[in-house]
Design a binder for these strands. Structure first.
Lengths: 150, 150
DNA sequence: CTGATATTCCCCACATTTCCCCACAAAATA
DNA sequence: TATTTTGTGGGGAAATGTGGGGAATATCAG
């Protein structure tokens, strides 16, 4: 059983638009069969999601199975999902270069936050994430209510 | 049948922010298949919870099953649960390094208390725990009422 | 086609953090 | 009292995260 991406790690965007992938995450990526990773803006939130290739493939497959191959609307959905994704490759220091349009999509300043999501992880502008966060007490309450057996 | 985490043990935080895991607990951890452990602030109280990886995985799975994969609110809950956790690794002496933000979350002074919770255990600031404790008589009464068959 | 400009990416340098290791104190056990 | 186990405290090497120079490559206007 291998580790998963958990936790949140502060990261800085340098002048050249580069961001390091935390060593903890790099180690997990290194255990993957394929070293390639895929980045896509999240469908729900203002953040970028990074998938190990295997996980990306699973996700696309899941969508393909669920959506109708001969329904044009469904196919448009699938196409758009794929069209906004791209392979990215870390440099020799383990940093990735973020494009201006990607940065724009998440309203990036130079303070970013890398957030684990088990089989993948997300890049947020730090402040955006903090604003989005449910406050601790509220979080506990919602979770409690949601999980308590009726 | 393996032992569980019970009891409460005083622990000190050293200059570098390290805290030893009591030998009793280390022995229990050693019986786990995976040596990895996960730490997360507790959702309900001002303390840090330490899970053997197996127990952590169970918990996440439990949440995943209960929550809806395509409901954004549910996903936010799950993400926040995962985002506040981290793998921690004891050093060769069996100590763990606590980050400043973790210490802050529990209002840690240098006197801590390690409290068993069966399949996991918690780290409290000693004074915080003592304040939180239900007094003995009250405790007996509540327990009696709660357990008495109606 | 050519030169100017921007982009990408390799490399080196350095500050900071983490963690390995040793030494020893304190407590438990024999 | 001897001996093992457990807990405490640093020194310093190694890993990690930053930053930037500059070569190679791509982009583009004239």
């Amino acid at each position: 059983m291998t580790s998963t991406f958990i936790g949140n790690i502060e990261a800085r965007l340098d002048e050249k638009g580069r961001m390091f992938i935390p060593a903890v995450y790099r180690k997990i990526l290194a255990t993957e069969e394929s070293q390639r990773i895929v980045m896509r803006r999240d469908t729900e939130n203002e953040c970028l999601v990074i998938y190990p290739e295997r996980v990306w493939n699973q996700r696309v497959e899941q969508l393909s199975e669920e959506l109708d191959e001969w329904n044009p609307d469904d196919q448009m959905l699938l196409m758009q999902f794929v069209a906004d994704a791209e392979y990215i490759e870390p440099d020799s220091q383990g940093r990735i270069l973020l494009q201006k349009r990607n940065l724009q999509q998440i309203g990036a300043t130079s303070d970013l936050l890398i957030v684990g999501m088990m089989n993948r992880f997300a890049i947020w502008d730090k402040q955006t994430f903090l604003n989005k966060r449910i406050d601790q007490r509220e979080f506990a309450k919602t979770l409690r209510e949601r999980m308590t057996k009726k």
